[in-house]
Design a protein around this nucleic acid. Structure first.
Lengths: 378, 378
DNA sequence: TTGTACGCGTTATCAG
DNA sequence: CTGATAACGCGTACAA
């Protein structure tokens, strides 16, 4: 028999509604509705008939009508800071992929760190009946999040960060101030679920890898004054302490921009002598180190081993390819959705995910066989 | 007088509707509706009163109800292929920024090149009453776009590309086959508006820059077998022809992946001698060239000058910083919105935007002063 | 200038 | 198992 005759597509603007489907079968719209949502109280025969017709006439439910009727949206709002920072991509995919499994649709909004845009994002979400919100690495004030919970939204934060006083870094870099750090870790906002990367563990892992390669001198390139920066430094120190190699130098760029990072590394390299090893706050910092080393004529990894953290998109394209601790980006996104939607979204326990070492070419054993500790010769 | 008493936020789930606002003022919902949309037939007094109350009780219009009533959505669907390829970010911003000016909200969908996802994206858009669609550098079959126009959507394509036979590249690289290229350029889909980067001009600009620096030997690193690749090669050839330097070598990686690109460059470098110059298909190809040069011990830009095209996010972080022809990414996004929304969206003329040279460190004059043409000494 | 009444496409309740 | 009916929140033609 010939292929099903496709109804000619409606003249651009008209919609096929349930009424049309119902009329085509001589049943009521209620029946159609029931068939479409697998209501048990319906005969198998009519159900399949409805499904068949709906398919043939290209029926699509009106999200607006459904939303109006049910007063619930199946939408999850997502605020990201900057798109395309090489890290957000897979997180977005994780969110979209998992949300899809729940029949939810993500509604993305790029806030670019502007409070005005954040506020507008919330207005849009509210208008759209969005009740679930995911904030991806929010950097600014927690204003948006507070307002969101005040409006009755469930919110999950992926890698939320917060400023910490600069002196905490100095304390960790020199003395023993773990208790302070832990206190910061407690400061949580209750109706918000935290999904995060284990920064301390990542710092530890990166450092342990360099130690295992035989390095005896290992420097840290600090990140900005935020909690994740502090925790990665903490992990760095822990690994070194365990190995009996603490203390080691901590490089502090004057500002969290590429140029200052390069400067800090350049300055260090001038005073040091190969071979050395470095754990950078993140891949971007690692890239700054790579550039500084290149300019100073140090070869990577022969003279300087560098390990980054994050595994951004570009980590495999640096020169040489960057060894790094990868964030489980897709999973972070997926878990945020789970936190909001699984089991009715009543599970507010924070999730902490471990990183994974990705070995490329920027770190290797010290070129001269590792002997006892070697002091940089001035 | 004390600050306006804020009504306690509704108990999480309840919505403030027009009815509430109307009741608070003792007017009808029609009046409220009119006041909110600047209907001329309303007294200034009641209008301001309504506005004031609406503001105080945190009224937000229900997008769903409005959509159902007006049968139009103020939504623009956006399909991107891969998020976070370092290029999409600013385009997204341009779309969001301009859409906002029209009171439209972008609805993003990452299709990742999977036809299944593309189809689902369309279903979602249809359900959401989306009638305007933007596709950002679609790679796959034009299936999605065809279906979209069949469903009555207006669609704009940013940097749409299409496969071209591999032999066209060979023809351009050797003979004179411009007419074929132009024919390809004609093959357009009518109800679709094309917003695109001028690939040929970019190829020309990159090449002219190298020539202006004094290079007499200038090689091209080919991209994949798509139209943009062909056009950039064409621009490369035009610039060289004008300068009386054609022909020059065209490197053809066996497959459009980083490894093969590196291999192609490595192979060329082995047979050549410094100094040389190269125009890469895009920044990623340029990065491959940088890596190959680094491994072969050639210094950039002293021994090899490299110019990329696109100016992806990471171009300023390569080692050395990449000189490249920047796409006007934000503007591409903004113009796509204009094409759909400005003047009722009846303007289907294609827009072609020029690139801009961004000078960083990867290209410089040949280290030995440029004399007559120098042949690579085998 | 304002109010009344209706319908957009669904789903849920209540009869049958 | 199925049909009639009401209501979700808003915009608008029509009446006042």
């Amino acid at each position: 028999m010939p292929y099903v005759t496709r109804a000619t597509p409606p003249p651009a603007g008209t919609r096929v509604t349930m009424k049309d489907v119902a009329a085509a079968l001589g049943v009521s719209t209620a029946t159609v509705s029931r068939a479409l949502q697998d209501d048990p109280a319906i005969s198998a025969a009519t159900k399949s008939a409805v499904l068949e017709v709906a398919q043939r006439v290209q029926y699509r439910p009106s999200a607006a009508a459904r939303r109006l009727r049910t007063q619930s949206a199946s939408l999850v709002g997502v605020v990201v800071q900057s798109v395309g920072d090489g890290y957000i991509g897979d997180v977005v995919l994780g969110i979209q992929g998992r949300a899809r499994e729940f029949g939810y649709q993500p509604l993305f909004f790029a806030a670019e760190g502007q409070p005005g845009l954040e506020s507008e994002a919330l207005d849009v979400f509210l208008s759209e009946h969005v009740t679930q919100l995911i904030a991806v690495s929010p950097t600014g004030k927690p204003q948006l999040l507070r307002r969101a919970v005040a409006e009755g939204m469930r919110v999950a934060v992926i890698n939320g960060d917060q400023s910490v006083p600069a002196r905490h870094f100095a304390e960790v870099a020199s003395g023993n101030a773990d208790d302070k750090i832990l206190k910061i870790e407690r400061a949580r906002n209750s109706p918000i679920c935290d999904i995060r990367f284990d920064d301390a563990a990542a710092g530890r892992l990166a450092t342990e890898y360099l130690i295992s390669l035989g390095h005896r001198t290992c420097v840290h390139l600090r990140g900005p004054n935020v909690r994740s920066g502090l925790l990665r430094l903490l992990g760095f120190r822990e690994a070194l302490t365990t190995a009996g190699m603490w203390p080691q130098p901590v490089l502090s760029p004057r500002a969290p921009v590429m140029q200052h990072r390069e400067d800090a590394v350049t300055q260090y390299l001038r005073a040091a002598s190969p071979p050395a090893a470095m754990v950078a706050y993140d891949d971007l910092c690692a890239v700054a180190a790579l550039r500084a080393a290149h300019r100073a004529g140090w070869r990577v990894p022969d003279d300087l081993s560098v390990v980054g953290i994050d595994d951004i998109q570009f980590a495999s394209y640096t020169n040489p390819g960057l060894t790094t601790v990868a964030q489980p980006k897709y999973e972070l996104g997926a878990l945020a959705v789970d936190a909001l939607l699984a089991d009715g979204g009543c599970d507010a326990r924070p999730r902490v995910l471990d990183g994974q070492l990705v070995i490329r070419e920027s770190a290797g054993p010290p070129s001269r066989p590792a002997g006892g500790g070697r002091e940089p010769r001035r």
